[in-house]
Amino acid sequence: MPRNLSYLVTTGPYSPMNSSSSSQPTSAIDWEVPTFTRAAQFRVGATLVLFLFAAVSNLAVVVSVVRGRGRRLAAHLRPLILSLAVADLMMTFIVMPLDMVWNVTVQWYAGDTMCKLLCFLKLFAMHSSAFILVVISLDRHHAILHPLDSFDANRRNKRMLLLAWSLSLLLASPQLFIFRVIKAEGVDFTQCVTHGSFQEHWQETVYNMFHFITLYVFPLLVMSCCYIRILVEINRQIHKNKDGESHLRRSGTDMIPKARMKTLKMTIVIVLSFVVCWTPYYLLGIWYWFQPKMLKLTPEYVHHLLFVFGNLNTCCDPVIYGLYTPSFRADLAVCWCCQRWDSSPRSLDRLSAPHGHHSAGAESDAPSVDQQRST
């Protein structure tokens, strides 16, 4: 029997008892105990590579924002970038190891408490990652459409971040009650599943669809509306410029401050990476919820590949941030030089000199302090 892709509220290898659509009992003679197949081995290997890269890169972003040149970012941008990196780290250190270990062991050995806790943490990490992107999109929307309100941006962003983390916690909390460890009848097989938590199949489908909406549809709609309005506003200002009408400028040639436009481009690319990486995974999940027999119609490696592709998003965010942030690249260069050449205190002081007169060259293409405050 083919193995299942981990859909939203379930994680791990396939068996009818850990499928989110298997609330009704299944006879032991109707299925075979799943094994660690070649496709699953590829999934574990690929996830391990993504785990190592995502862990190092996102930790580097956190260090840069907290202790490095990332502190030069505008005060209201630092919590956003830091929260995104923390959400990605949760995906890295919770979702990826859980998926790898569960695929290797096939069945569940960690007990009922860990079953509930880890399934809760997985959904919490996925919600927080999506909601942080919503907050970033709302911040860019307000910065472009209401540039004069930038002085209140720091307090507004902190409130939105608190709401995002709180909603993630609330929406993931049902996992603590619907997941449990169950032993299959007639065979030596134990699994962490939602089996028996729903009286009817449609109730579980509604639960899954609700999380599909909160994890993907709602964030996508909000982010799309924000960036469509931003593009409409930019287009309107372009036409004003052509018609010779007056409008707010940073300089004689800039319609929108360079730093703000650069940050806008970065957030658009980050949102696009989220959409590209996770859309195939969620679409396959919808197909599965309404037609569980689709598992027999699609090759096993397709399920594993789409899950790995979704996790790629966790690696994309720090790369995109680095491409658009010279200060982060400078921090990486300093760390690389320290490890490559000399780890003596004198050399470290020399390499840390960009905080002084050497910083002008390293940050020549970075926005000025005034520009950063305007973002």
Rank of each mutant, 00 (worst) to 15 (best):
M1R: 08
M1L: 06
L5M: 09
S6H: 03
S6Q: 06
P13R: 14
N18F: 06
S20E: 06
S22E: 03
T26I: 15
D30W: 12
P34W: 01
T35R: 13
Q41L: 11
F42H: 13
A46M: 12
T47E: 12
A55C: 14
V56G: 14
A60C: 12
V62N: 02
S64F: 02
V66N: 11
G70I: 01
R72T: 10
A75Y: 09
H76V: 02
L77T: 01
L84S: 05
V86R: 09
D88K: 07
M91A: 11
L98V: 09
W108L: 01
T113F: 04
C115D: 00
K116W: 05
S129C: 15
I132P: 00
I136P: 00
P147K: 04
D149G: 09
S150G: 10
D152V: 10
D152W: 13
R156I: 03
L162R: 15
F177R: 08
K183Q: 13
G186W: 07
F189R: 03
C192Q: 00
T194C: 13
G196Y: 00
Q199R: 15
E200P: 02
V206L: 14
M209D: 09
F210K: 03
H211N: 11
F212K: 01
Y216R: 01
R229S: 12
E233C: 15
R236H: 06
Q237W: 03
H239E: 08
K240Y: 12
G244Q: 12
H247W: 14
R250K: 04
R250P: 07
M261P: 00
K262N: 05
T263F: 11
M266I: 12
V269G: 03
V275N: 01
C277N: 10
W278F: 06
G285Q: 05
F290E: 09
L305F: 15
L312P: 01
T314M: 05
C315W: 00
I320C: 03
Y321L: 15
S344H: 13
S352P: 12
H355V: 10
H355R: 09
G356Q: 13
A360E: 08
S364H: 09
A366E: 08
S368P: 07
Q372N: 05
